[in-house]
Amino acid sequence: MAAPSAKTKPPLGTAAKSRNRRLPPRDRAVVIAMVAVPTLFVVVLVWVPAILSMVLSFGAWNGIGDLDQITWIGTKNYEDIVQIYPPFWPAIQHNLIWLLFLFLGPTLLGMLLAVILDRNMRGGRFYQTAFYMPVVLSLALVGFIWQLFYSRDQGLINQVFNSEVDWYGDSSVNLWAVLVATAWRHTGYVMLIYLAGLKGVDSSLREAAAMDGASERQTFFRVVFPVMRPINMIVLVIVVIESLRAFDLVWVVNRGTNGLELIGALVAQNVVGEASRYGFGSALAVIMMLISTVFIAIYLRIVFKEERR
């Protein structure tokens, strides 16, 4: 915190005010611009569309003709989604599975790989590159690559194991098949972030821990891991965001139907392309936004708590 004069804790408002008064007009203009321009962008690019989506979600419109063509139907879209739209509940469930899986699978695995690779083993660079490689591929491409493994009749897995599993088609296994493909990419991503974090940990901390007779495991869990708290927050946020916006992979596989329903894919099915159910799709998008908001709220709470400390 700036305010060097603050001996005790002054109320935040007065500190800000006194600082403001001291700023010369030119700096003030700069500050105002620096606040106003991003605010404008956020309002125009985030809030206005979000609010418009909310408004649209109470109407039925196929996008043809002017806005006066919208029929306002109240909460019917929401009622339909919850009551008669079969893909909705599976989609919610799949998004949550996605979230849990990303945490328990690739995130922990990525962390483990990072710890191992951080020990400067022989060929470490090679492994690092190999694990990171999938991250540079778009998820659409990942879906296609895995199709070569998963295809029921011509895929590698069934050929090698002489099995007949319909990896992408059987609605009880395809979600897991897709999750493995996601994990393939996500692990490398998390690994790299942790690797960077581990490199940033002051080596004197480890030495001190070693001096105190801590075992390697203790050093990691009691010393290194807590120090990496900012990295953990970043990874947490990335995982949550990745699983809420999960879309590309299932879209490539089968456009988010038959066991691969995700909210994002349902929004696209209804809005993108010829279907043009703008009201219905917007209602789905609003639901997605509400779910995201819950996670964002939790995140912000943690961050603010941190700052107050």
């Binding site: 099915q269 279907a275 219905f280």
Partner: peptide, 17 residues
């Protein structure tokens, strides 16, 4: 188009499943 895409496709797939 909206009916065919958002209703019939998932429904037929559900039936085949």
């Amino acid at each position: 188009a909206d009916f065919a895409t958002t209703v019939i496709i998932p429904s037929i797939q559900k039936f085949l499943d």
